[in-house]
Amino acid sequence: MASNNRTIKEAKVQEIKEKMQNAKSIVLTKYQGNKADEDTELRKTLREAGVEYKIYKNNLVLLAAKELGFEGLEEHLEGPVAVAFGYEDATAPARLLNEFGKNHKAIQLKAGIVEGTVYGTETIKQIAEIPSREVLIAKFLGSIKSPVSNFAYLLSAISEKKEQEA
């Protein structure tokens, strides 16, 4: 019986390790006190953004993290903790959990790992404020488009003026 239990735990640790290796970011969050319908809403929001949200035993998460060389999570793995794995957008788990937590006080960011680096609560909250990749690209393109549009308008005005003079 003990051998079977150990095998199950080893399989879970392996599963967590694989998720950690494949994720661009991992966020630990407090969730206790979240109602069932709120949890369903949160999971749906995260799933639509490509974020996987799981609840594992803290000691299994800690074992997986240590095997991968992630140090500094021990202090954040106390009490009930959920883990969000972001596979597409590195800021998505922190951003979405932080946004949801503004209206649902049970959700609180604890720590995270972004592209292999472990961050504490305050840094994860700062990362949560970074807009999505799509928003950043749109802002960048908008900032490039404005001078080009102004230049095109200037050329058009010069052309019209010369036509009027001729």
Rank of each mutant, 00 (worst) to 15 (best):
S3D: 06
N4T: 05
R6V: 14
R6H: 08
T7W: 06
A11K: 00
A11D: 06
Q14Y: 07
K17G: 07
N22T: 11
N22L: 14
S25N: 00
L28W: 05
K35G: 07
D37A: 12
D37M: 11
T40L: 13
E41G: 05
L42S: 09
R43P: 02
R43K: 12
L46N: 00
Y53P: 10
K57E: 08
L60Q: 09
L62M: 09
A64H: 02
E67D: 13
L68T: 03
G69Y: 14
G69L: 10
E75T: 14
H76L: 02
E78R: 10
A82K: 03
Y87Q: 10
Y87E: 13
Y87K: 14
D89S: 01
T91K: 02
A94H: 04
N103L: 10
N103M: 09
I107M: 02
Q108R: 07
K110H: 02
G112K: 01
V114T: 04
V114N: 02
G116W: 11
V118D: 08
Y119R: 04
G120W: 06
E122V: 02
T123K: 09
I124M: 15
I124F: 00
K125V: 02
I127L: 14
I127T: 00
E129V: 03
P131T: 02
R133N: 07
R133M: 12
R133H: 06
E134S: 07
V135H: 01
K139E: 15
L141I: 13
L141D: 01
G142I: 13
A152R: 09
S159A: 13
E160D: 14
K161H: 14
E163C: 10
